[in-house]
Each structure stands twice: as C-alpha cells, then as structure tokens.
C-alpha cells in the first residue's frame, strides 16, 4: 500500500470517527432529554406509583452518564485546536454558571424575585453559554 493511500485512508477513518462520535453525542442527548421528560411528565400524567418514578429516575441517571461519556469521547477524538476550543468554552461556561447561579440564588434568598430559583434556568443558561462560547472561540481561531 502506498503511503499516500495509507494517509488518505487514515484521515478518512479519523473524519468518519469524528462524525460517528458527534452523532453518538446527539443520540445520547436526545435520549437523556426524553428520559428527563418521562420522569417529569410521567409522574404527573401517566402513573402514580413511586416505584415507577424511582425506576425512571434511575434510567434517566444511567442515560445521563452515557451522554457524559459520549461527550468525553467526542472531545478526546478532536484534534488539538478543537480540544482547546472545547476546554476554553467549558472553562468559561463553568465559571459563568457558578457566578450567575449564586447571584440568581441570592436574588431568591433576599426576596428580590417573586418566584423561587429554578435549577432549570441554570441548566438552560449553561447550555446557551456553552453554545455561544464554542461559536465565538471557533471564530477566534478561524
């Protein structure tokens, strides 16, 4: 086998590996969202048994772990610049989430907001921050 052919085959397999791992993250993420919705809405509208609720929470946790592992593989399979972009984005997201999360909780404890602080707002904030950070970091290096 010529070295040119070997390199092309190797890089093609690297590309397809990256696409595969990205698809895997998407599938695990959809599955986790569905199991989370099942826990929330199932216990309200579909059943009354606490045992079923506990089982669906365990299922949601297990699928969540699968999603985290798929995400970890995706980051590890990227090249050094892609890993740097992910690392910077995750660092910013973590820092901002802690600062904004604590400020949000303080707004609740000091009664400056009418409703109780909800964890779902923080999760939404983290997701949006991460997407924006990846977008702007990718642009920074392009």
């Amino acid at each position: 086998m010529s070295s040119e052919l070997y390199i092309n085959q190797k890089s093609n397999s690297m590309k397809s590996k990256l696409i595969e791992s990205r698809n895997r993250v998407a599938k695990w993420s959809v599955a986790w969202i569905l199991t989370t919705a099942l826990v929330t809405f199932g216990s309200q509208f579909l059943w009354e048994s606490q045992i079923i609720t506990v089982l669906t929470i365990i299922l949601s946790l297990a699928v969540g772990v699968g999603m985290v592992m798929a995400n970890r593989n995706f980051v590890n399979e990227g090249d050094e610049l892609q890993r740097k972009i992910q690392l910077e984005s995750m660092g910013l997201t973590l820092g901002l989430s802690v600062v904004v999360g604590i400020a949000y909780a303080q707004l609740d404890t000091t009664d400056l907001i009418a409703q109780d602080a909800e964890i779902s707002f923080l999760v939404l904030f983290m997701g949006l921050t991460y997407i924006l950070c990846v977008f702007f970091n990718a642009r920074k290096y392009s």
Partner: peptide, 17 residues
C-alpha cells in the same frame, strides 16, 4: 489530512493564531 488535523487547525497555524 496528511498530518491528521482539521483544516481549521491548519488555517489557524498559518495565520499565527
């Protein structure tokens, strides 16, 4: 492809970013 990185990485290296 030859050095097994993304095209974006080559672009960023060339531009000194």
């Amino acid at each position: 492809e030859r050095i097994e990185v993304s095209r974006q990485t080559i672009n960023a290296i060339e531009k000194g970013k």
